[in-house]
Design a protein around this nucleic acid. Structure first.
Length: 583
DNA sequence: GTCGTGAACGACATATACTATGTAGTATA
């Protein structure tokens, strides 16, 4: 089976193909809402949510899936049977990756891309830089010097964040997990993992490093280069292969012997600064550390190589979690046994949407069942309030309240089910509904969804004002950034954190991968005040409840003290805080 | 491109605000 294209198309791969088709069709037709685009998106959703492997279905069976018609079914079969979809290939040629990167810049949509390509010969971000420098943008009909300046600013901001040309973790992590799963299927493979900055949980990654221990490296490489995600192979050797995916992410695969995997993981996880420090430490003990082993300088006798734990232990260090390996004092802390304590298990979620939100995909019942299955003690249902596009009117919340009350009878003490809402924070700190209606909720998270360009003072003031509302218990995705796509709003973090501490408002660490918000910077600032944190999923589907783990992993990068986090470990602290709003 | 009704064709269409331009494009959960 392996080595043939047929065995390798899982529902996720097929759904991705239709999502890509939708993305390319938006560019092609210049309309994000065309019926064709929506049909592709529906098809992607239908396949992703199917409870059978779509690749095993016939044309007729495929068409029985809601949202898949004749054309979609034919495209699925074509891709599964031939390893390629003509329509997709055609659009990829027409709209190369560089063009798609252009379309992802904030403020630039499909229409502008078309105009830039046709009238200024701009086909990439670099072309755009040159056109701006040459003042060519202002000569295009419908654009002006003002637009030109806006484009320049957008590029400058993304450059400052260093995200252009890097892959956001929201793309890299699911891709890496999928590749790991695929490589596990290869005969003779004993170990597969991802390393690099992705394992350290950085927001964006330059490439994805995969590590394999296998008896037959050649077979691994052979299978690897035939994966459906592959666009082209950059380097191919016996132990190292690099390739580029169709989304433009570079993947490096390295094959090592099973007994060397610990040293390899350590080396390829980095960071460089961490590795340098470890190697110096090894030298001071008369040893040498490389990607194969920790060994004696004289004679080369191996001290440790099979696990990272053994290598750290041999060096007299506590195990350093990958998230802390940045060369920022972690070695010294590990030596003294003063690494931050790990977070306890997450015991509740405080940012969860259901189908009451226009964009929610799981029902209240499904969310409650899933929370029970996860062993939660508390669950706050927080659907969008009227201030956002997907928001629900009062009546919908009243209806939901009745259903939540009914659930409470069944739940008893097992789960504290809170009726909440995600309130929108207006440009001046206004909140949805009125104070009387808001007071009926058990838990409100308030967050910013628009007016991203206000000056710092006003952004800060709107959030501080929201925190002063008696109904507001936490602030959601504080900066409203989208990693790699949109910078966060401009905020005076010290003022925010101080106000949060004063009002007893928790700050959410939103674990949705495109957000990871609080940012590391905000988390570090929060540590200076007595501010409480909540790890949340922002789940719109039961499958996304696991985002809380991302929040925890990410927060670990900022050396967050577990005592600051309300919803991990012993629930007593959490339950007490819930009763405590100061006003 | 899909669906449903009736066997070929029409319905489907977040809504709203903002920005830059002077009507269109983009962003938002």
């Amino acid at each position: 089976m392996l080595g043939t294209a047929m065995a390798t198309y899982r529902n996720q791969d097929l759904a991705e193909a239709f999502d890509e088709l939708a993305e390319l069709t938006i560019l092609d037709e210049g309309d994000p809402q065309s019926f064709r685009v929506r049909a592709y998106e529906n098809a992607a959703r239908a396949i992703a949510g199917a409870d059978v492997e779509a690749a095993t279905l016939t044309l007729a069976q495929l068409q029985k899936l809601e949202g898949i018609g004749k054309s979609g079914a034919t495209k699925v079969r074509e891709l599964v049977d031939t390893g390629c979809m003509a329509k997709l290939e055609e659009l990829r040629l027409k709209h190369p990756l560089e063009v798609r990167a252009l379309a992802k810049l904030p403020g630039i949509g499909p229409k502008t891309v078309t105009k830039l390509r046709a009238e200024a010969n701009v086909h990439s971000i670099d072309d755009l830089r040159a056109a701006i420098a040459a003042q060519k943008i202002r000569t295009i009909k419908g654009l002006s010097a003002k637009t030109e300046a806006k484009f320049a600013q957008v590029i400058a901001e993304l450059d400052a964040q260093g995200v252009i040309g890097r892959t956001p973790i929201s793309v890299a992590l699911p891709l890496a997990r999928r590749l790991v799963e695929q490589l596990r299927q290869v005969p003779g493979v004993e170990h597969v993992s991802y390393a690099g900055s992705l394992r350290r949980f950085r927001e964006t990654v330059g490439d994805i490093d995969l590590l394999v221990a296998a008896t037959d490296p050649a077979a691994v490489m052979e299978t690897f280069v035939g994966f459906p995600q592959v666009d082209r192979v950059l380097v191919r050797g016996e132990t190292k292969t690099s390739l580029l995916t169709r989304r433009g992410t570079q993947i490096d695969l390295r094959v090592v012997a099973a007994h060397q995997i610990g040293a390899a993981q350590l080396y390829f996880t980095g960071s460089k600064a961490h590795n340098v420090a470890l190697r110096q430490r090894a030298l001071s003990r008369g040893w040498t550390l490389n990607e194969y082993a920790l060994a004696e300088l004289d004679g080369g006798k191996v001290i440790a190589s099979e696990t990272e734990e053994a290598i750290y232990a041999a060096l007299g260090l506590a195990f350093v979690p990958p998230t802390l390996r940045e060369g920022a004092g972690e070695i010294e802390a590990a030596e003294r046994g003063q690494l931050p304590a790990p977070f306890g298990a997450v015991n509740g979620d405080f940012h969860v949407h259901t189908t009451t939100s226009g964009d929610g995909q799981s029902t209240l019942d499904e969310m409650v069942e899933a929370a029970l299955a996860r062993g939660y003690r508390v669950l706050a249902i927080t659907d969008h309030a009227e201030g956002t596009v997907s928001g629900a009117p009062r009546e919908a919340f009243e209806l939901q309240h009745a259903r939540i009350v009914a659930w409470r009878e069944k739940l008893g003490d097992r789960l504290l089910l809170l009726h909440g809402a995600e309130l929108n924070i207006g440009p001046n700190g206004e909140l949805d509904y009125d104070a009387e209606f808001r007071a009926r909720f058990d838990f409100c998270v308030a967050s910013v969804h628009d007016h991203m360009d206000l000056p710092r003072e006003q952004q800060t003031a709107r959030i501080v004002r929201a925190m002063q509302d008696p109904a507001v218990r936490s602030i959601g995705h504080l900066s409203a950034r989208m990693i790699g796509a949109r910078p966060g709003i401009d905020l005076d973090y010290d003022a925010i954190v101080e106000a949060a501490a004063q009002t007893g408002t928790a700050l959410e660490v939103n674990g949705a991968l495109p957000r990871l918000d609080l940012s590391e910077e905000a988390l570090r600032r929060a540590a200076k005040h007595d501010v409480k944190l909540l790890f949340t999923s922002d789940a719109h589907h039961v499958d996304e409840l696991g985002n809380v783990a991302h929040a925890a992993t990410y927060a670990a990068r900022a050396w967050v003290d577990p005592a600051r986090v309300l919803n991990t470990g012993d629930p007593a602290r959490l339950l007490e805080w819930l009763k405590s709003k100061s006003s």
